[in-house]
Design a protein around this nucleic acid. Sequence first.
DNA 1: GTCTATACACAGATAGAC
DNA 2: GTCTATCTGTGTATAGAC
Lengths: 224, 224
Amino acid sequence: MVPTAKSRRWEPRRLSAVAVELPDGVAPKGTPGRILLAGLRLFAELGFHGTSIRDLGGAAGINSATLYAHFPSKEHILAELVLLGHEEMLRRLRRAVVGSSADPVDRLRALVAAHVSVHTDFPLLALVANAELHALSAERAAPALALRTEAQELALGVVQHGVDAGVFHVPDVWLATAAISAMGVRVASWFGAGQPYDREQVVETYAEFATRIVGADGPGKEQT
Amino acid sequence: MVPTAKSRRWEPRRLSAVAVELPDGVAPKGTPGRILLAGLRLFAELGFHGTSIRDLGGAAGINSATLYAHFPSKEHILAELVLLGHEEMLRRLRRAVVGSSADPVDRLRALVAAHVSVHTDFPLLALVANAELHALSAERAAPALALRTEAQELALGVVQHGVDAGVFHVPDVWLATAAISAMGVRVASWFGAGQPYDREQVVETYAEFATRIVGADGPGKEQT
DNA sequence: GTCTATACACAGATAGAC
DNA sequence: GTCTATCTGTGTATAGAC
């Protein structure tokens, strides 16, 4: 009894409340685009291994065999989505840092706002990029992992910048960065699913939490 | 080309660095226990749908057919692990709250210490309980979801307690609780995987971050 | 580009001997 | 309880017509 999209009635992630879409300008048009949107929804909902190529074809409005006229394999569809997700993330984080002032608090707030807003704007893409990357072979995961490393170093640099300036006071830079990152990543799991919060409220609140985590609101926050 | 445990060479979660174990006293002995440990490792590594019953039997040292002498289906194995994970979590959170003083900061620190330490002590169990629950039918996921709801309400209560006492100052209780919870949940994804931090360091640091998030270190933390 | 039809491996699960 | 052997459905992917 292999569960399929058809037999599954229950949706723990409540994706129906979330728009199925990709960042403007980066998604292909026509059938390849519809295939990617189908993968976005189904991989987020059922997971890569829980989605069959017949599920994908059905959701894209084509026969499953037609998928192979556009992608060499099911795994290539996931790889494309995972890469798009990581590219959008890194693009926004870079833009935030470059566009911010040298003030450590401003820069951190800009970084966190960008990070959180990617998860509110494209929760499905963030979910697939994070939770389904493990289903890719090492070879096909590598491009996304390289972008992920860059994003992590960017974030670490922002926190370290504040520490060096004497504005941030944290027990450990890596742990503080991990904590701030974790807040944002989880947003994709609940945003839009019947929650009362809008995008700006979440972004602003989490930016505030990040400044609190790094102890930027005042002195004397070092761990004793 | 269905990827299987045998053909997979790459391990993004680096589970080899993490002990495969269940909480003392709650795991069955003998073959059922070995089956659960096999499921713990493989479901965390490959996901429920990425793991075959032959993978499970091989990891447990038995023929795949023998699985059915102990569990009615593959899904029942996952259901048991997911339930064990949620039970352990709720048990520890309750113990922490009951054993803490009425002081809001003490109570929050105890709660976060318990939450984080579950993820450092049993990272695989936490990973499976969180990331693979979606593979269960509604019927079999229900018991764990009920425990999850209780745990969430427990955490919300602890934060609300501090707000009511005038000790915590947060823009929103639910968002603050979600942020604190997110920090802990993510620990399971990296703890032990070649990181230099030990259990106590992570627990203590994240407890400190939680008190900062709720603005308990001083006045004037309200969102403006 | 899209379809129908199909190849062939593997999935979950069962029967029955020991 | 554990095994060997096997059933049956589904999986990914391909061939070839339109």
